[in-house]
Design a binder for these strands. Structure first.
Length: 245
DNA sequence: ACGTATGTTATCCT
DNA sequence: TAGGATAACATACG
């Protein structure tokens, strides 16, 4: 569920219900981080995604849902897991489980820097490149996961993008030629949309070239290590991916 | 059946 | 005190 493209899918699913600024008739769930009464009888203005966050937008505040690692949702269905937040509309019900819910004052437009949303129309690759160059000593595997640079990129996207760009995860920004940085940033955006397409088709895992794989497409053995500052599981091909230093 | 994990953050260490 | 390690969340998947 958690990476950016999956949140886009959720947003599209709800948009396809063709709700028209629906009123919240009932609020349920065990969420404690927000005042549930604040939502009652409010009209939802729109649904949006920002990075890994799902946004339910109201006139002057924004409900932000982050699914973390285990979060799930059901539309017009329920399950046994304790309900974190349920929103009953006139005809539909939106149920969120195992997620982090926050109520932020203000409109979504002004709450986030939309130019860093990897799936967004306003994505600004030049800005990402600029931010990367400001962190010369960081490993590229950590920077791809930096939500202040690549909002919405997660561990799967990280691994696949590094393979596509043929960059070893422990390369540092200062050692990468500018052309390579540009390629990487472009690939981060491009693969995110491939992820979206394949996830919709149900073929995402079939297209993994390194993530969860034993060998790369050229049949070289894949290395699997927890590396970088973030210690996230990293899959890479030592033969195909060049270490810049 | 069990180990692992698409993520983040608070808290406890050193 | 800065930074690192750890736990917590609760489920699905192979």
């Amino acid at each position: 569920m958690p990476e950016g493209p999956s949140i886009v899918i959720l947003t599209e699913l709800i948009e396809n219900l063709h709700l028209h600024k629906p009123e919240i008739i009932e609020v349920s769930g065990n969420v404690t981080t927000i005042d549930q009464d604040r939502l009652l009888h409010q009209k939802i203005q729109e649904f949006r995604s920002f990075g890994k966050r799902f946004l339910i937008c109201f006139k002057d505040f924004t409900l932000q849902i982050h699914f973390m690692l285990f979060g799930t949702y059901l539309i017009n269905d329920t399950k046994k897991t304790p309900l974190k937040l349920g929103l009953t509309l006139k005809k539909d019900q939106l149920n969120f489980y195992t997620c982090k819910v926050d109520l932020l004052e203000g409109k979504a437009d002004s709450l986030y820097d939309w130019s860093i949303d990897i799936m967004g129309d306003e994505w600004d690759s030049k800005k990402a490149i600029k931010k990367l160059k400001e962190l010369p000593d960081s490993y590229i595997c950590d920077l791809l996961l930096d939500q202040h640079i690549f909002s919405g990129v997660g561990n799967i996207i990280k691994n696949e993008v590094l393979y596509r760009s043929r960059i070893h995860p422990l390369s540092k920004i200062k050692d990468l030629p500018l052309a390579k940085i540009k390629e990487l940033v472009a690939e981060a955006r491009h693969y995110s949309f491939d992820f979206l397409k394949w996830k919709k088709e149900g073929t995402l895992s079939k297209h993994w070239e390194v993530y969860n794989q034993k060998v790369c497409p050229k049949n070289h053995p894949i290395a699997k290590k927890e590396i970088g500052k973030t210690h996230r599981q990293t899959y890479y091909c030592p033969a195909c991916q060049k270490k810049y230093n």
